[in-house]
Simulated scan of single mutants.
Amino acid sequence: MDPRILDRLRCPVCGEPLGLATDAKALRCPRRHSFDIARQGYVNLLTGRAPHVGDTAEMVTARADFQAAGHYDVISAALAAAASRAAADFGAYPLVVDAGAGTGRYLGAVLAALPDAVGLALDVSKPALRRAARAHPRAAAALADTWQRLPLADASTAVLLNVFAPRNGPEFHRVLDPAGTLLVVTPDTDHLTELVSALDLLRVDPDKADRVAASLGGHFTSVSSAVHRTELTLTRPEVATLIGMGPSAWHTDPTALGTRLAALPEPVRVTVAVRLDVLRPR
């Protein structure tokens, strides 16, 4: 693991700094708490059993395929631009953390735009972390429950990404540098709107923006908020991949979905609409 990342990690049990074991197969703290490094490259920083396992291997594969086709590059571009502005005032090797990183695609895009930065992907899904560990040469990955205390030093992070993922306001505030920036991406009300009715998918909560603000209330001040939109032209199999990578994958009957998909005229035009909120610690 890159020492510039390792220096900012902390033991999830006692909060002491972590170092690489002599056999390079684990991280250990001075109190001898030990955390294995998987052969796929990520380190397991969970303490006890996680209350959930995150995205399945099938969901992660669907997401990787969909992202690789460039369909969500509008999100990557918006994050990279915002992160470049946010990290401009930091010195050498600012740390970018993606909390709920999934495949690491967005973290990789941000690091590509920040040649002096290093990155850490945090997720509770092992299939996701197997990909995130390879997302960028300057990135590392760790198995961690972002609802719990994050395995990071206080004020260690320059930019924190949170894309379609749970938000832990107190912990985000603790690990961010006072001059750092939180970038939160959430679906806007018309995100995938053409598919919601046609395929009976989960709808975006109309109060989503208010719930995001409430989850971070008291810890952050809004700097800006902007909606980024694009229209996709998809085949039916690509629509199936899109559905399979998101929350509707847990709630949609496969047989009924197949019937509805077969009735869609091709090509399928789909709106991507996401809100990017830029926030600073209070």
Rank of each mutant, 00 (worst) to 15 (best):
T233F: 04
L279Q: 04
P151D: 07
A165Q: 06
G104K: 06
H219A: 11
T193M: 13
E238G: 11
E171V: 02
A78Q: 03
E266C: 11
S156A: 13
R134N: 11
L257P: 13
V272F: 02
V124D: 03
F66V: 12
K126H: 09
R130Q: 12
R4H: 12
L107W: 00
T233R: 14
A101P: 11
R236H: 09
L276S: 11
D123Q: 05
P267Q: 06
A101R: 09
L182F: 00
A69S: 13
R32H: 14
A165W: 00
D207G: 15
S34R: 15
P3L: 04
L242K: 13
R39A: 09
D73W: 03
Y93N: 15
I5H: 08
G19N: 12
A57E: 09
A128Y: 01
A209I: 11
G100Q: 01
V159F: 01
H219G: 04
L111K: 04
P3R: 08
V110Y: 01
G19M: 08
G91P: 07
L182W: 00
A198V: 06
A64G: 12
L129G: 05
A50M: 05
L95Y: 00
R4L: 13
F66K: 10
V272L: 13
V204Q: 08
L161K: 08
A198I: 01
H173V: 05
L122Q: 02
C29L: 03
L6Y: 03
H228Q: 10
K208M: 11
K126Q: 12
V124K: 04
H173E: 10
D190K: 06
P254R: 06
T61C: 09
L120I: 07
L183K: 05
D65Q: 15
A158C: 00
L242M: 13
E238A: 11
E231T: 15
R10Y: 02
N162R: 09
L150D: 08
